[in-house]
C-alpha cells in the first residue's frame, strides 16, 4: 500500500504538470500547427474539391500561376489600399481618443466601456448596417455629404476608391476604441514625475504629448501596428458583405474591392481549387511577415525621432 501511494505521489509531482499542459499542446498541434505545415504540402499539389481523382503533385505550378494571375495582383492592390486607408487614421484617431480619456474624468469607467461598443458588435452585423449607410440613393453617408453641400450622390460600390473608403470606415469604426484603450493603459503606466519635471522646464501639454507620452508608449504603438497589419491584410468579412450578392465573393462587379482573404475563399470554395488557394495563403503569410517587419521598423524610426 505504501508503495502505491508513494508512486502516486511521484506521478503527481513529476508527471502531473505535463498532464495539465497536454490538452493545449495536443489540440494546438492538431488544429493549429499541422494545418499550417500541411498547407505547404497542399500548395504543391493540384487539390480539387470537385474532382479528387485529379489530385497529384503540381510542383511549383500553383506559385507560378500566382505570378501572372491578374486577380491576385488586383486583390493585393486592393488589400493594400484598404489597409492604408484603415490603419493610418485608425491608429492616429485612437491616439487622440486615448489622449482625451487620459484625464481625470467623471464617469471614467462608463466612457471606457462605451468605447468598446463597436468592438463587441459582431462584424457581420455592423457591416450589414454600413451596407445600408453607404447605399447610393438613400444611404445616410450620402445624406450627410449632401448636408455639407456635396449634392452628387456617391455610388460607393462603383469604384475602387469609394469602396475602399467605405470598407476602411467600417474597420476604423470597429477598432479605434479598442486601440484607444490599449494606448490609454500604456499612458497610465508613465511615471508621474516625468511630467512634473518637464512642466518645470515649461513644457506645454501639447509638447508633453509629443515629447513624453508618444515616445513612452511606443512599444504599445508598435504592438498595435503589428496587430492591425495582421488583421488588416486578412480583411474578409467587410469586403464579403459589401457585395450586392455576398455569396459570390467577387468584391464588386469588377473586383473593385476584392481582398486576398476573399480571393482565397473564392478560389478554394467557389472554384473548388484548394491547391491554388493554399499557395495564395502562403503568399499572404509571407506578405504579412514582410509588411509587419517593415511597419515595425518605420514606426520605431518615426517614434524614436520624436524623442
Amino acid at each position: 500500500m505504501r508503495g502505491l501511494s508513494h508512486r502516486l505521489h511521484r506521478f503527481d509531482v513529476k508527471q502531473m504538470p505535463y498532464v495539465l499542459i497536454a490538452p493545449f499542446f495536443i489540440l494546438f498541434a492538431i488544429f493549429g500547427l499541422f494545418p499550417l505545415i500541411f498547407n505547404g504540402v497542399v500548395a504543391l499539389r493540384t487539390w480539387r474539391l470537385d474532382d479528387p481523382a485529379q489530385d497529384g503533385w503540381a510542383g511549383l505550378a500553383n506559385f507560378e500561376k500566382l505570378l501572372t494571375d491578374e486577380d491576385f495582383w488586383n486583390a493585393l492592390y486592393n488589400t493594400f489600399g484598404i489597409f492604408v486607408l484603415s490603419t493610418v487614421p485608425q491608429l492616429f484617431l485612437a491616439l487622440c481618443v486615448a489622449f482625451l480619456l487620459n484625464r481625470r474624468l467623471r464617469g471614467q469607467t462608463w466612457f471606457r466601456v462605451s468605447m468598446l461598443l463597436p468592438y463587441i458588435t459582431p462584424l457581420t452585423a455592423s457591416t450589414l448596417v454600413f451596407l445600408v449607410v453607404f447605399g447610393r440613393d438613400y444611404g445616410v453617408a450620402n445624406w450627410v455629404l449632401s448636408v455639407f453641400g456635396m449634392d452628387d450622390p456617391i455610388d460607393w460600390r462603383a469604384g475602387k476608391l469609394q469602396s475602399w473608403v467605405a470598407i476602411a470606415t467600417m474597420v476604423n469604426w470597429k477598432w479605434i476604441g479598442y486601440n484607444a484603450l490599449l494606448y490609454l493603459s500604456a499612458m497610465q503606466t508613465i511615471p508621474r514625475d516625468i511630467y512634473e519635471a518637464s512642466a518645470l522646464d515649461g513644457a506645454t501639454s501639447w509638447k508633453q504629448l509629443w515629447r513624453i507620452t508618444v515616445p513612452m508608449i511606443l512599444p504599445v504603438v508598435i504592438f498595435t501596428v503589428v496587430l492591425s497589419t495582421i488583421g488588416g491584410l486578412q480583411l474578409f468579412t467587410e469586403p464579403m458583405l459589401l457585395d450586392a450578392n455576398p455569396a459570390s465573393a467577387s468584391g464588386g462587379s469588377n473586383g473593385e474591392w476584392q481582398t486576398i482573404a476573399q480571393l482565397i475563399y473564392k478560389v478554394g470554395w467557389k472554384n473548388l481549387n484548394l491547391g491554388y488557394a493554399a499557395a495564395m495563403s502562403w503568399a499572404l503569410f509571407l506578405i504579412i511577415v514582410v509588411v509587419a517587419v517593415v511597419n515595425t521598423l518605420v514606426t520605431n524610426r518615426l517614434g524614436g525621432g520624436k524623442r
Partner: peptide
C-alpha cells in the same frame, strides 16, 4: 501566428 493561414489545410483535415 495567424492560424487563419492554415485554413485550407484545416478544411481538408
Amino acid at each position: 501566428v495567424p492560424n487563419q493561414l492554415g485554413i485550407v489545410a484545416l478544411y481538408i483535415l
